[in-house]
Design a protein around this nucleic acid. Structure first.
Length: 283
DNA sequence: ATGTGTTCCTGTCCGC
DNA sequence: TGCGGACAGGAACACA
């Protein structure tokens, strides 16, 4: 599910509860998500204060006063919700957790944060904060598209020489980190570039258009609370609504929205995943 | 080194 | 209404 805008939306929604908050109790209702949860997961969270809640690519990072960081990835279907509950208690209506509620955190003051993930492609880990950047999960991640280091030259540099299709290159988290299937399709449409183009073959003007389109679509999506196809919820349960602004994603057969184009949105498959684009104006 | 296909898991939707 | 197949926001992994 969640790409950069959805994860950023979740980060903002959890900040009031997490940052400065103390975890009074933690519970894992199963030993694994996509991967096994780390040793003594609940114990290492219990009693900890959260110093900061950050995002890197599609990862949420909660820095703890123990020197460890709780790393959270939402996979395809992960979501968080915040509920008020009696302090330190996990009280379930029928005496057991809700369907696909896998991890719960009870905060001082009564807030209860629940991680739900039907497909269980998400995962959590506890990693020494000071060693995060060297950890295999993060060491190879590419440039942060909403960060200060992202501009046309940076994009040109990570695409240089790549003979893979533009679509695949933009999905590659080692080149640029945080884009997924939706926002790659949307950004390529915004830049009027074909997803089938060879990634290393863009002209400078095309690279500039693409860099701008990426930033614009991500910012607009964050403004809208992300996109809800099925699972994504903001932490208060509200839907995202950027899906109403899609130009191409899941819009096969619809008209292209670019002025005077008149083309029709097509769907094709690239490396096993749907690509939506306008073959008339995306060249 | 680089590229593509398969896999993990559950749920939903569509056609018959 | 039921059933099978396709498909879904990710990304590690195995292979050509």
């Amino acid at each position: 599910m969640p790409e950069l805008p959805e994860v950023e939306t979740v980060r903002r929604g959890l900040t009031a509860t997490f940052v400065g908050g103390r975890i009074l109790a933690a519970a894992a209702h199963r030993p694994n998500l996509r991967f096994p949860l780390p040793q003594s997961f609940a114990e290492r969270l219990t009693g900890r204060r959260v110093l900061d809640l950050r995002r890197r690519a599609k990862y949420l990072l909660a820095d703890l006063d123990s020197g460890e960081t709780l790393v959270m990835h939402l996979g395809m279907s992960g979501s968080f919700r915040v509920e008020g509950e009696p302090v330190g208690e996990f009280h379930h209506p029928r005496g057991k957790p809700g369907t696909h509620d896998h991890v719960e955190l009870a905060f001082e003051g009564g807030a209860r944060v629940v991680y739900n993930d039907p497909r269980r492609f998400g995962f959590m880990d506890l990693i020494e904060t000071q060693a995060l950047e060297r950890h295999p999960l993060f060491a190879a991640l590419g440039v942060e598209p909403l960060g200060p280091d992202f501009h046309a030259a940076a994009l040109a540099s990570v695409l240089a020489g790549a003979r893979t299709p533009l679509k695949a290159a933009l999905l590659d988290q080692r080149r640029i980190a945080g884009l997924g299937n939706i926002y790659v399709c949307e950004a390529l449409h915004g830049a009027r570039l074909s997803p089938l183009r060879q990634a290393g073959g863009l002209k400078p003007a095309e690279t500039r258009k693409l860099a701008r389109a990426i930033v614009e679509v991500l910012q607009a999506a964050i403004e809208a609370g992300g996109s809800t196809l099925r699972d994504h919820r903001q932490t208060d349960g509200e839907l995202g609504y950027f899906q109403h602004s899609f130009a191409v994603y899941d819009r096969e057969g619809a008209g292209c929205g670019h002025p005077r184009c008149g083309g029709m949105i097509a769907r094709t498959v690239q490396s096993g995943r749907s690509t939506f684009y306008c073959a008339t104006c995306q060249r």
